[in-house]
Design a protein around this nucleic acid. Structure first.
Ligand SMILES: O=c1ccn([C@H]2C[C@H](O)[C@@H](COP(=O)(O)OP(=O)(O)OP(=O)(O)O)O2)c(=O)[nH]1
Ligand SMILES: [Mg+2]
Length: 621
DNA sequence: GAACAGACTAT
DNA sequence: ATAGTC
DNA sequence: GTTC
């Protein structure tokens, strides 16, 4: 099942970690800073000449004369916004509050966004105000969209810095033209603005304020419906639902450099600290059984945090979403939180989430949730599209940004790849979870076909089924053979057999090569009213059985935790093997190390890592 | 400021 | 290289 | 967003 995919790319939140006690994101008032600087806050000097780069001579105390700035508050700490407002006013600039909903204010000459905001993210915000790409490009071509460091630098140097020295604006314009070109292809609408051609010509070189691969977002702000609704199970959801305490890093104990290249140091070390625990294992959730059964006494808090987590996930801010997942896990397992001191010492809760919890404690809700996770068209469309197998945050956002809103219009208006076509075809079936009894039927069907082909094959249904969940998102079947070789020639024949019986209806992915074979696809039981179900089959050599079983049983969060732990111990754990002496420089692997022999059971792997064995049901983190 | 799991396919 | 999935 |  898909669910919590984590594509690469780090989300770089940069600033914003401040101690802001939650910004009042949307102020109904038109002018910002009313309380502090009434005299300037509503000034709107006439626009000088759009985006001219006329820098005032230094020494001019009012070098921002004629400039009307709108600060997009998302991710800029409130304290910083307040300070900027004040300083801008002092230098003769005007300020207009940024309203997520209303139309773009025509008088604004400069939009300022947090330094960590990239072009894609900025576009998303502007699209909420002006959904029409062409109109937007028209408007934006007459203003500047700049990172925060432009205004801070200007204030610092008492000079209006040359806007041309910042790439964000050009990147934004370029992004818009690319999108217009793309949607024109779809609509067969002819190009319009000459500006589009121009900006193509000035494509900027990525730099400084350039996207870091994850467009972190700042969808907008708007008080109002704290929407959530949606009965559909989002794919990006539940990335770490049951985390016990965050699986991260070790505390003090750092081994790192020092040699110990020698083969046996590892074993000796482990043997010494054995039976049991690496000195740093304490901070990894894979050291503890998952909290099955215990009830969450902080539901009022985790509910709010989950909304933020889901929104971050759906907008591609995976690391931020993951951080929320860890925080949610610790809050869920903590005793009832009623006061600020109760938060102290909880792992995964830093200043940002702490302030939100405090707000929930005091007011019963969190403004950021209402503002950010709002139930608007855009968010609903993104959520809808993310429900398609083969579609995730990037694609969903792209489609929603080009004003697509329903499943029906997709086939005609965008180019769906093969997988997405299948995903769309079974959209509703795939959203349903599978009762265990039906998993058993599917398992039996596959098992019978397999055993007809080869005696002695072992089939184990893994995933959430093996962890004992009452319903499953899909069926994950591992196939191996204890003789170490009879697994080899059964993969394709097995699939052929299941296809010809009509059981397998679609292939999503067939991976033939490599020691492990993998099938991701769709099956259908020959029962009246049966639904199409996602079926994953892997065929593995017996030598990799332990690692493969461990992997395929999960949970995903548990796996990540255990792999982190292995990594910390200079090992590397994958679905193939547990390697020792794995060497990495940063996150780049220099040497895979050597696979450890004998890791043919899950127990052996737990042991080698110094972990207490956990039953599958206790790995449901 | 780097890391946050690790491996795989499709495009 | 990016997007998506397990 | 959090940790080291
Ligand atoms: O990002 C991932 C996703 C999955 N897995 C492993 C663990 C997981 O248990 C197994 C099967 O994946 P699936 O997506 O089916 O998860 P599940 O645990 O079976 O849950 P669901 O009930 O949604 O199928 O593959 C990972 O290691 N990383
Ligand atoms: Mg599954």
């Amino acid at each position: 099942m898909k669910k919590a995919k984590l594509h690469n790319g780090g989300n770089i939140p940069k600033s914003s970690t401040g101690s802001r006690s939650d910004p009042r994101l949307s102020n109904p008032g038109k002018c910002v800073g009313v309380s502090k600087l009434p005299e300037i806050s509503c000034t709107k000097p006439k626009i000088p000449s759009g985006n001219s780069t006329t820098a005032s001579p230094s020494g001019d105390n009012f070098f921002l004369r004629g400039v009307i700035i709108s600060i997009i508050p998302e991710r800029v700490p409130k304290a910083r916004v307040d300070l900027l407002r004040k300083r801008i006013g002092e230098r003769g600039g005007g300020i207009v509050t940024f309203h997520p909903q209303g139309a773009l204010d025509e008088t604004v000459t400069h939009y300022v966004v947090d330094d960590s905001v990239d072009a894609e993210e900025a576009l998303r915000v502007f699209l909420m105000k002006q959904p029409d790409l062409e109109a937007l490009s028209e408007t934006l071509s007459n203003v500047q969209c700049l990172p925060c460091k432009w205004i801070s630098g200007s204030l610092m140097s008492r000079t209006r810095l040359d806007e041309g020295g910042f790439f964000l604006h050009r990147q934004l314009l370029d992004l818009i033209t690319r999108k217009m070109t793309a949607s024109r292809k779809l609509d067969c609408t002819p190009p319009k603005s000459a500006f589009a051609l121009f900006s193509l010509a000035v494509l900027a070189t990525p730099f400084a304020c350039t996207p870091k691969s994850e467009p972190s977002s700042m969808l907008s702000v708007n008080a109002g419906t704290g929407g959530d609704g949606s009965g559909i199970k989002r794919k990006w959801e539940s990335i770490a639902e049951h985390a016990s305490s965050g699986y991260e890093d070790s505390g003090g104990a750092e081994s790192s450099d020092s040699d110990e290249e020698d083969s046996d140091v590892d074993e000796e070390f482990l043997a010494r600290v054995q039976p049991g625990h690496m000195p740093f294992a304490a901070k990894f959730v894979c050291s503890y059984p998952s909290s099955s059964g215990r009830k969450n006494v902080n539901g009022h808090i985790t509910d709010q945090l989950e909304k933020l987590q889901n929104t971050y996930k759906s907008t591609g801010q995976d690391f931020r979403a993951m951080a929320y997942g860890k925080a949610i896990g610790t809050v869920r397992n903590a005793p009832r939180i009623t006061k600020i001191e109760d938060i102290k010492g909880l792992r995964g809760i830093g200043s940002g989430i702490k302030s939100k919890i405090i707000e929930i404690l005091e007011t019963g809700a969190c403004e950021k949730v209402a503002a950010y996770c709002m139930d608007n068209e855009m968010n609903k469309a993104i959520e809808l599209f993310c429900g398609i197998h083969g579609v995730s945050s990037k694609t969903a956002l792209k489609w929603a940004s080009s004003n697509l809103r329903t499943l029906e219009e997709l086939p005609e208006k965008v180019r769906l790849n093969r997988v997405q076509q299948i995903g769309l075809k079974h959209y509703h079936d795939f959203l349903e979870r599978i009762p265990r009894s039906e998993v058993v039927e599917i398992e039996s069907t596959v098992k019978e076909a397999a055993l007809r082909l080869q005696d002695g094959l072992e089939l184990i249904t893994c995933g959430s089924y093996r962890r004992g969940k009452p319903t499953c998102g899909d069926v994950d079947i591992l196939v191996t053979h204890p003789d170490g070789k009879s697994h080899r020639n059964i993969f394709a024949p097995l699939l052929d057999s299941l296809r010809s019986s009509g059981f397998i209806t679609d292939d999503l992915l067939v991976a033939d090569e490599g020691s492990q074979k993998k099938f991701l696809g769709v099956c259908l039981l020959p029962n009246p009213g049966a639904k199409h179900r996602r079926l994953d089959i892997i065929v593995v050599p017996y030598s990799e059985f332990g690692c493969a079983l461990l992997y395929f049983t999960g949970s995903a969060h548990f796996n990540r935790s255990m792999r982190s732990l292995a990594h910390k111990a200079n090992m590397a754990l994958s679905h193939h093997s547990l390697n020792k002496n794995a060497v990495r420089v940063g996150k780049k692997k220099v040497s895979d190390g050597e696979p450890l022999p004998g890791m043919i059971t899950e127990k052996a792997i737990f042991d080698y890592l110094g972990l207490k064995y956990l039953e599958p049901a206790d790995r449901d983190h």
